[in-house]
């Protein structure tokens, strides 16, 4: 059997992490290619529902990343986001959504190496965990014909 290649979606803020990831590329730092990056204006815009949608569509892991505290382009987007992450993560924990599969980080525009490291460790840990079958099973509808009570 071919080795499992995790699908990972990264939700990142335009001003820091996206620029940081760019730097990773231009600095020719090697890192895993399993990540699809989705760019947002700010972490404040990264709705938790989007993370669930990523799992729906078959992601095995998720990275959420933006500017360090006090560095948000819009002053407080990341502070708001942080509160939401705290509560969302605790709700995930309570409902049995695997919190190991969602990595949160602060990566600045200058931290190309940190981005590579986040990606590499996330890919490695998700590879270890295997495909997120629990969520995929629940999301498998509409293969099922009928749902009775």
């Amino acid at each position: 059997m071919a080795e499992f290649e995790p699908k990972i979606v990264a939700f990142v803020c335009n001003w820091c992490t996206y620029a940081g990831a760019d730097l990773t590329g231009t600095s020719r730092i090697k890192y895993a290619s399993n990540v699809r990056i989705i760019r947002f204006p700010c972490t404040g815009r990264i709705d938790y529902m989007l993370l669930l949608k990523a799992f729906d569509e078959g992601a095995d892991g998720i990275i959420v990343s933006g500017c360090h505290p006090n560095d948000c382009h819009y002053t407080s987007g990341n502070f708001h986001a942080r509160r939401r992450w705290i509560m969302f993560r605790s709700l995930c924990d309570f409902t049995g959504i695997d919190t190991e599969r969602i990595k949160f980080s602060w990566v600045s525009a200058a931290e190309g190496a940190k981005w590579a490291e986040i990606v590499n460790t996330t890919v490695a840990s998700i590879r270890e965990l295997g495909p997120y079958t629990d969520y995929k099973k629940v999301a498998k509808y509409p293969e099922k014909e009928v749902i009775h009570g």
Binding site: N70, F79, R83, W85, I86, F104, W106
Partner: peptide
Amino acid sequence: NLMSTYKPDDKENFIQ
């Protein structure tokens, strides 16, 4: 309201 406010020093232990 709790979720429409924040404190700059809100604590968490999972953000890398």
